[in-house]
């Protein structure tokens, strides 16, 4: 399925006009994008390193995971909305960028993983789950979100 029409529409949209005409607005939105990414990365690191038993060992892993979930959702919505605005400024350029698609693919894989597997699985009592499965879930989560962040950064170099 070709999604070029969406990028063409985005390039001609009101968002694109705003992001291209007002550098200040773009900078503020970019700041929110980076803050959202920092928050998202922070929640992922906290929960996954706890699952791996690297940090916060005196706090039950279920408490750490439950506390970070809401902030993860906030960060995800923030990064998504600000990301759409930012990409409107260079929509057609992004369409031809391989790393952009790598980021979108890993982002989609991350969403399926978080909401389809990780969250339902971690809703069970962690003591009843295999420790190796918990570790694999944590490593998978770290690798997915690292790939999202690193391929996003790589867009600037490619």
């Amino acid at each position: 399925m070709d999604v070029y029409f969406f990028f063409e529409w985005l390039d001609n949209s009101f968002l694109a006009t705003m992001s291209k005409a007002y550098g200040g607005v773009f900078a503020v939105v970019q700041m929110f994008h980076l803050l959202s990414l920092a928050l998202l990365g922070g929640t992922v690191l906290l929960a996954d390193l706890r699952l791996l038993g690297v940090m916060l060992r005196d706090v039950p892993s279920r408490v750490v995971v439950a506390s970070t979930q809401r902030w993860f959702d906030v960060a995800l919505i923030g990064s998504l909305l600000s990301g759409i605005f930012m990409s409107s400024a260079v929509a057609l350029k992004l369409y031809y960028n391989e790393m952009f698609w790598a980021k979108m693919a890993s982002f989609a894989i991350g969403l399926v993983f978080v909401y389809g597997i990780r969250r339902p699985l971690l809703a069970f009592d962690h003591a009843t789950l295999s420790p190796w499965v918990l570790r694999l879930v944590a490593v998978t989560s770290l690798v997915i979100w690292f790939t999202v962040a690193a391929s996003g950064r790589w867009i600037g170099f490619s």
């Binding site: 597997i117 990780r118 295999s130 694999l136 490593v139 998978t140």
Partner: peptide, 11 residues
Amino acid sequence: QRIAVGYGILV
């Protein structure tokens, strides 16, 4: 758990 292991290995 099985799905998590399969998905994790693939990823």
